[in-house]
Amino acid sequence: NRMHLVCPMGMSPYVDQHMSSHQIWEEFSMSFTPAVREVVEFAKRIPGFRDLSQHDQVSLLKAGTFEVLVVRFASLFDIKERTVTFLSGKKYSVEALRSMGAGELLNSMFEFSEKLTALQLSEEEMSLFTAVVLVSADRSGIENVNSVEALQETLIRALRSLITKNHANEVATFTKLLLKLPDLRSLNNMHSEELLAFKVH
């Protein structure tokens, strides 16, 4: 019945048996808070993001932070070694994480990271793609859909232009990149379900 928290945004998958569920959650929250703050700082630097309403800025960040973190931390999933690096820097094998209860989400994260890495994006391209991930007009609770949509379109145009400049097979690369957006939504949904399972447990 030993509990594990199989998320690389924690320091370790092992949970102290003597801690209450509230303490476990507090400790986990403290480990991922700096990463979330970095996402907010990143969002603030997206040209036009600060011009959106406060409500819409919060809504986009609430809905998209997980997906941004998946993109930014894709390198934590080592496909060749089949390991996941946690925030402490310690690596855990897929087999070990499976034995701790990791399931379909872990496989999907590896699959996503592999496909994203294969696109060989530059730092600038990755950054612009991350902005496109965050500024999505179809997130729930958006007040001013037109403003978010306009910013999203500007970012997508900029991304397309950058990809066209840097890649030989630009149409295929751009298409593959846009197809990562529904993949991220799917990972986001799976992650929410796992969170629910953890909380219920």
Binding site: V40, Q57, V58, L61, K62, L195, L196
Partner: peptide, 27 residues
């Protein structure tokens, strides 16, 4: 489970991180 962000305490972290930004804008 419609709002995983609130469950994680994400909203609070996000609002606090954005807050300085809004104060700057209004000043």
């Amino acid at each position: 489970f419609g709002d995983p962000a609130s469950n994680l305490g994400l909203e609070d972290i996000i609002r606090k991180a954005l807050m300085g930004n809004f104060e700057d804008k209004h000043d």
